[in-house]
């Protein structure tokens, strides 16, 4: 287990309309790159949203040893009806960064995701893959210490997926901590250091990635890997 963690969950509960979505999640997250895995309906996205603060837990608590700046990228990119540059700029404007500085940062972020030539294009007119890269640029421009990704490549073609993985890898290389959910086990192996395995709203395993894939400890994880394996 990790010695220095940056987030601790203590008995985290989430109930919605009488349904237990997350049950008594207790763990410490300290890895640089974490993948949350589990079958459909296991509560992966909900756990991610609880961590990011988009959902309020109905029980338990989250403890941040120190505050971290965060961003999140969603499965389906949500673009404003504005140019690509304006979309990246918007997140910076919300942080109160002065306009001149914003422009510089936004253009730099677009360079990093390989889309500088699309800066003046209407964002909603781009392909799904391009939009997801703009979403990553928008997140990256904020220079977050922590990035959440919810199934970032689930609706993308293989080429776009590879590009998105490359960008995530580069962000991680600059020191941004990554927490992501994914259905793509190959992707989890390529990106993550550590796996959090969820089933039925319960955290069943938290193990280094190689160990998880080689020797899953719970029968649920074994069944999951067998089903998902190609």
């Amino acid at each position: 287990m990790t010695s220095t963690h940056w987030l601790e969950l203590q008995g985290l509960d989430l109930r919605e309309n009488g349904v237990q979505i997350i049950a008594n999640a207790t763990l410490k997250v300290g890895a640089g790159r974490t993948a949350i895995l589990g079958p459909n309906g296991a509560g992966k996205s909900s756990l991610l949203r609880l961590m990011h603060g988009l959902l309020k837990p109905t029980g338990g608590r989250l403890i941040w040893p120190q505050t971290m700046t965060q961003s999140m990228v969603f499965q389906r990119p949500v673009m404003l009806r504005a140019t690509v540059l304006a979309n990246v700029d918007y997140g910076l404007a919300l942080r109160g960064i002065p306009a001149a500085e914003r422009r510089e940062k936004a253009i730099a972020a677009l360079h990093r995701v390989g889309l500088p030539e699309l800066a003046d294009r209407p964002a909603r007119r781009l392909s799904g893959g391009e939009q997801q890269r703009v979403a990553l640029a928008r997140a990256w421009a904020l220079e977050p210490q922590l990035l959440f990704l919810d199934e970032p490549t689930a609706s993308l073609d293989p080429a776009s997926s590879r590009e998105v993985e490359r960008i995530i890898g580069e962000m991680a290389a600059t020191g941004t901590r990554i927490v992501m959910t994914t259905h793509n086990l190959g992707q989890a192996r390529r990106i993550a250091e550590e796996v959090i395995f969820l089933d039925g709203g319960r955290v069943l395993e938290q193990t280094p990635v190689e160990e998880f894939f080689r020797r899953p400890q719970t029968t649920a994880a074994q069944a999951f890997l067998q089903e998902e394996a190609p």
């Binding site: 949203r49 990011h52 999140m72 949500v78 919300l94 942080r95």
Partner: peptide
Amino acid sequence: REYREQLRSLGASRTR
């Protein structure tokens, strides 16, 4: 409905 999570994630207040 469409933008809520994204805007909140970016830190927009409700008025913003």
